[in-house]
Nucleic acid binder design. Structure first.
Lengths: 357, 357
DNA sequence: AATTTTCGTGGAAGCGCTTCCAAAAATTCC
DNA sequence: GGAATTTTTGGAAGCGCTTCCACGAAAATT
């Protein structure tokens, strides 16, 4: 049996209250007593039982991250930043992957009750309306990341503007027949990116063509997959002379599929069709994909910081913070004329990050 | 205040023992009573307090995964499999990223004490000798993944054989000047992969050349990075006529860096230098990299299953299970003669998985 | 020197559960 | 119909801690 606070108290000839105070850095313990307690605690390898602590103090020192089941780089990078902060504050990170959207509500109802966790990060999932409504007070602080609800702190990416910037980039390159290769329109990012795309075209007074607007209908990962990109690009390529000269693809992963479809068909990028993605996952750098960078690490950091603030002070007004993706120009959207070609006919892969504001 | 077991008991006009029994699926509760309790519990949104439960029952329903701080695809895929199993068994997954190797021991000492978690997965980190020694009984079940120690269940990849298979693949393609682009030799996988490489050459009676053996000295991620691959490949390319015709790269991520270095220099792959990586991360498929696939998902699954077994029965003998990586042949090791070239001069990216036993 | 204030400390109560034992209720048996 | 079983049930004790109140000793004040 591991030693309890009583064992330490007895050995150190003090009361349990004193031992407790030592381990909670309570100021009113004399230096000698403190050292004596620490000495024995150390010798006996004593560690306060976190559950007993949680039960007695109503603080758990752990925060819960609820993420969609599919783990992509997007979440990893956010969680990595989260972990870093939590670790230095001595908090535990509990992970809940949600497999089915219907489970979200039950999960919330279960974990949102005081005493389970000190706070909760809710990533990329739709906050059920019904739940948000009945979520009044006396509840655990919740911060949303990559999803929005007026009643909670929300940290999201400006998908509309990002998509618009991406599209404008293609326009600025001289393209006029521009397509969009979108994910499943069920998902909010897909809707917003489509919206941004359309607004950019409208602003540039480029007429929209229905055949240049394609989206996935797949349910898996809301269509943000390599396969969906591949399939939709094949459809684009089948358009023959009506096919676009540039395409805004709503995620890097889809773009990689699209690129593969192009390679197989012998359509060159960017010569025949230029491409721009969204996300800037690691892969994008490797394949030289122009894309919109999402500041995942920053989002994670700010979200936890906000969560901590809210844990200190319940009554903060919800804030809604938005992150503007940055344009990262790489090979797939290079201007053909501006290319450097070396003796072997290959080109260096370069990355140009363009800061937008 | 959330309702407690007492509130439910009062409403349902039963004793707290009965409520407890209902929530623990104890058989000796009559159907009507059970339904009545459940009815009120539901109405009042009652959820047993996990910490109180843990304290009273000495089961926590959570397992801890200790991972190196740097989060790579390797861990993600393993953890994803772990999560899937835990979720369906109603267990929580607690994540501890270890930032500094020196922290490992303290972390173990702290969490390995009964009552904190029910079990622990220890990924890719070196189990401190000193700790393993004093870790006798009355401790939490621990299972190691991607690392080995005789006193614990260990699930590891056969790096030596994997590296040997990779090297033999290159040999079978007719290559004789074969290099190895390795990570930091401080790390076990790097050492083992070097060993497998050497043994394959020896078996084929190919003399080893010192200049074809290169490794990273970087500390970050033990040298398993894009940058290290890039840098070392530059060194290979600087060898001029003495440069290899094929290289075994000890990870996909390094291989992607190596490929970039080749592209920049105008050295073609596989025409001038063939490449084989290790891991089969998603990226490998996208860039058409031949590689050794590590069965990460399978490892994760089996490791948790073993952990569960051990949680049921303390006294199991440690087992040591080993996974053989599979050769996945893609573009970077194609035989030049066997290439299909289509009219535009591009080739389809194909994947051939070769099962080895 | 007597009084007040401060500091350090001990330990009871209570956090919300599980588990056990004893007792009540229902069922079976003779 | 009553005793013997079996099935349900109630609730005290205890899990390991925090927190608060009370108390004695030391320091400061008068």
């Amino acid at each position: 049996m591991p030693p309890t606070i009583y064992d330490i108290a007895k050995k150190a000839k003090v009361g349990i209250g004193t031992v407790s105070r030592v381990f909670n850095n309570h100021p009113s313990v004399s230096k000698e007593t403190r050292n004596r307690v620490l000495h024995f605690a150390n010798r006996m390898n004593y560690h306060p039982h976190p559950y007993a602590r949680g039960l007695a103090s109503k603080r758990t020192n752990s925060i819960l991250a609820v993420i969609p089941y599919f783990t992509t780089f997007f979440f990893i990078e956010i969680l990595q930043a989260v972990q870093a902060i939590l670790a230095e504050s001595n908090y535990d990170l509990i992970l809940h992957g949600v497999t089915h959207p219907e489970h979200v509500e039950g999960m919330l109802r279960k974990n949102t009750v005081r005493g389970r966790v000190d706070g909760m990060l809710f990533l990329s999932l739709k906050m059920p309306k019904k739940f948000a409504h009945e979520y009044v007070n006396s509840h655990v602080p919740v911060v949303l990341v990559d999803t929005y609800h007026p009643d909670f702190d929300s940290f999201t990416v400006e998908n509309v503007k990002g998509a618009s910037i991406a599209t404008k980039h293609l326009i600025s390159l001289g393209h006029r027949r521009i397509g969009i290769l979108n994910a499943n329109l069920e998902s909010t990012p897909a809707q917003e990116r489509l919206q941004g795309f359309k607004s950019a075209l409208k602003e540039a007074q480029i007429p929209m063509e229905q055949c240049l607007i394609k989206h996935s209908t797949s349910v898996r990962l809301d269509g943000f997959t390599h396969e969906d990109g591949y399939g939709l690009m094949k459809q684009f390529l089948a358009l023959g002379t009506k096919k676009p000269t540039a395409i805004f693809v709503t995620s890097d992963i889809q773009a990689s599929g699209a690129l593969q479809a192009m390679e197989e068909t012998g359509i060159r990028c960017p010569e025949d069709i230029a491409l721009i993605g969204f996300d800037d996952i690691e892969l994008a750098r490797h394949i030289g994909l122009t894309t919109m960078r999402q500041p995942m690490s920053e989002m994670g950091t700010l979200a936890v910081q906000r969560l901590f603030e809210r844990m200190k002070n319940e009554k903060l007004e919800p804030i809604f913070r938005t992150f503007l993706p940055t344009l990262v120009v790489r090979r797939t959207s290079e201007l053909i004329s501006s290319r450097e070609v070396n003796q072997q006919g290959t080109r260096p892969i370069r990355t140009v990050v363009q800061t937008t504001n």
